[in-house]
Amino acid sequence: MDLENQARIMDFTEKYGNENLIVVLGGGEAESSGLAAETVSTGDPTFAGPLAGVPLGLKAYHIFELKDMVDAAVYDEQISMMEMVLDVDAIIEEIKTYRK
């Protein structure tokens, strides 16, 4: 995960508290989405960013998982094309492993 985004997420946890935050991902690939989910839950596995060794314990969801919670017209306009293109099941499966 981008080092700046790691710093931003860390700032948010300090400002709003971990219990009030979830992370919504939009990654296009299972491995990189999983890496992002891992970073915000157990810490940066690459030990490169501010979340290295910082287990925030945040739960990450892919936007595909939140389809029913989003305005259908907005989802159709923003996401539906990529839903046809990406390996939705593999991405969700990978992200889920970091919420257990």
């Binding site: 094309m81 990529m82 293109v85």
Partner: peptide
């Protein structure tokens, strides 16, 4: 490949 899939999906839409 991701681009081609997006173009195809656009065609479907």
């Amino acid at each position: 490949l991701a681009n081609y899939k997006m173009i195809s999906a656009l065609g479907v839409k």
